[in-house]
Simulated assay, not measured.
Amino acid sequence: MAKVAFLLAGGFEDSEMKNPYEAIKEAGHETTIIGLEKGAECKGKKGTVSYTAELASSEAKASDFDAVVIPGGSAPEALRVNDDVVRFVKELNEQGKLISGICHGPQVMISADILKGKAATCYIGIRDDVKLAGADYKDEEVVVSENLVTSRTPNDEPAFIREILAKLA
């Protein structure tokens, strides 16, 4: 079974964390919530779910994980300015491990500079940023490009989860 990290900060899109997290756990994979500080409470922007960071980004080692999921909402904005988060995602990419992001999640991929030459999708509001980062932007429910899986909105969660689970299998 795979070890899957979830990058989280307050203000994430509730369902974009809850649904992939539960599906990945249900499939038997091990999950770890990585936040800016260990023990920090991360509340969803709609207030329906809340999670506690089990590991600080400063302690996260790419070699300990097989994949990362980056939910959207406003959390990626807080995550992308953290050097440890960016390092972690860069290292996962260098190791060819699965990096998945939905909605605003690809903002972290932009800061980690891992989109060049890959296809990706995202929330329409950051489409230009994804293109400027070197990605071939696609307006599709899910885009799989090498080790990346990206989706646009909560409506795309079933396809997003399906492709993550397929990659982890």
Rank of each mutant, 00 (worst) to 15 (best):
S74L: 12
I126M: 03
Y123Q: 09
G72I: 02
S111M: 14
A133G: 14
I102W: 09
N147D: 05
E146C: 08
Q95P: 06
I126C: 01
K97S: 00
I126L: 00
A135V: 14
S100Y: 11
R87F: 05
Y137T: 10
E141F: 07
V130T: 12
L148R: 05
E140Q: 15
L79E: 00
D136G: 08
T150E: 04
V143Y: 02
V142L: 00
G101N: 04
V89M: 09
V89W: 03
V143K: 07
F88C: 13
P106I: 03
T121M: 01
C103R: 01
V143Q: 09
A119S: 15
I99P: 06
Q95M: 05
I99W: 10
V85G: 08
Y137R: 08
L79V: 01
Y123F: 15
L115T: 13
V130M: 12
V108L: 11
I99N: 07
A75M: 04
S100C: 03
P106V: 02
C103W: 06
G72K: 07
K118S: 06
S100F: 06
C103F: 08
I110F: 13
K116T: 14
E146G: 07
V142D: 01
E77P: 00
G73N: 05
S74E: 14
Q107N: 00
S151V: 06
L132N: 15
S151I: 07
H104D: 05
G105D: 02
K90F: 02
R152K: 14
V81M: 04
A78Q: 14
G72H: 07
K118W: 00
I124K: 05
M109K: 09
T153M: 07
G134E: 13
R152W: 11
S151W: 12
L92S: 11
V130F: 12
E94L: 04
K138I: 10
D139C: 04
E77M: 08
N93F: 09
C103D: 14
H104K: 05
E141Y: 10
A78R: 12
V144D: 01
S74K: 08
K97G: 03
V149R: 02
